[in-house]
Nucleic acid binder design. Structure first.
Lengths: 153, 153
DNA sequence: CCGGAAATGCACGATACTTGCGCCAAAGGA
DNA sequence: TCCTTTGGCGCAAGTATCGTGCATTTCCGG
């Protein structure tokens, strides 16, 4: 699939507002609503648009704390990764988890209601995990930008 | 605004699929479509749902590289933060930026097409910034989980 | 200059959303 | 106990939005 400037405009607009009407989209990208509909369908079909998600307000839901945790695992036994992946999958406080190159083995993006809930997660769940060797936390003080998605040009 | 179990079910479902039809939502949460519509509107009105966003496939768009960068700034002059905030705002490769407690001053979530584009960003943009004192990168090797949003219970 | 494939806009049938309405169940007062 | 009020619910009608067939235009390649 090859993307032209219309597609890029459409994708950019839909990242900002995925509930946009085809008519509004049409106005924004200078195309007819029907063409927007068709291009949208094609982009979804091609898997460029994976889906749509509601963005929720963490503040209004009482989730005041966000943190980035770097984790090192001990040992190198096989099954070590699968084991940690299961741990990640089973803990909804972990919103994102990446295996990374460099100093740490994994980086986790954590959401919690408050510092107590966060400390609880660290001390009752993460640290007791048998393969976790080291944990270093950075708590988010201020969000300068949080766009998710991808910048297209 | 107070949320009951229906609201939580609706929010959870809409985080997974924000383009869901009210009828589908109704079936999933055991409510009528009209009530789903009303509750949805109320949640949007209250700001609990901030909006909707299209999720794009980084892979299909040729954005193969993701990295987490920890940055330390030099000095403590006032205006230092505003300056760095402007830098962040002006660089679309930076998808998220957080000021954090702990070892680093800022954590950045970076997306780039490939290692070259990433290196270019580091050496031509980030490192030359006058207030950047130290930069430590971790490149994402594998994504175990990437949900964004918030887990409700 | 011409032919054809691809893309576009229009119009209309189909689908989904929204809201007025009557109903019901729970809480509180007489 | 009985009545009233209040809030939430489903149904159904009216309205907005979507998706597609079709004729037209645009853009290349020959």
């Amino acid at each position: 699939m090859t993307l032209d400037s219309f597609d890029i405009a459409i994708l950019t607009a839909l990242q900002r507002d995925g509930a946009m009407t085809n008519a509004a989209l049409a106005e924004q990208v200078n195309l007819s609503a029907s063409q927007c509909s068709r291009r949208r369908a094609a982009l979804e079909q091609a898997g460029v648009i994976e889906g749509y998600a509601a963005r929720l307000s963490a503040a209004r839901l009482g989730y005041g704390l966000r943190a980035v945790i770097r984790v090192n695992l001990s040992g190198h036994g096989q099954g070590r990764e699968e084991d940690f992946a299961r741990f990640v999958a089973g803990h909804p406080q972990i919103r994102s988890a990446f295996s990374v190159s460099g100093d740490a083995d994994y980086i986790l993006d954590i959401r919690a209601r408050d510092l107590d809930a966060f400390a609880d997660f660290i001390h009752r769940h993460l640290l007791p995990h048998p393969q976790v060797a080291q944990v270093r936390s950075e708590i988010v003080l201020k969000t300068l930008k949080d766009e998710g998605g991808i910048a297209l040009r």
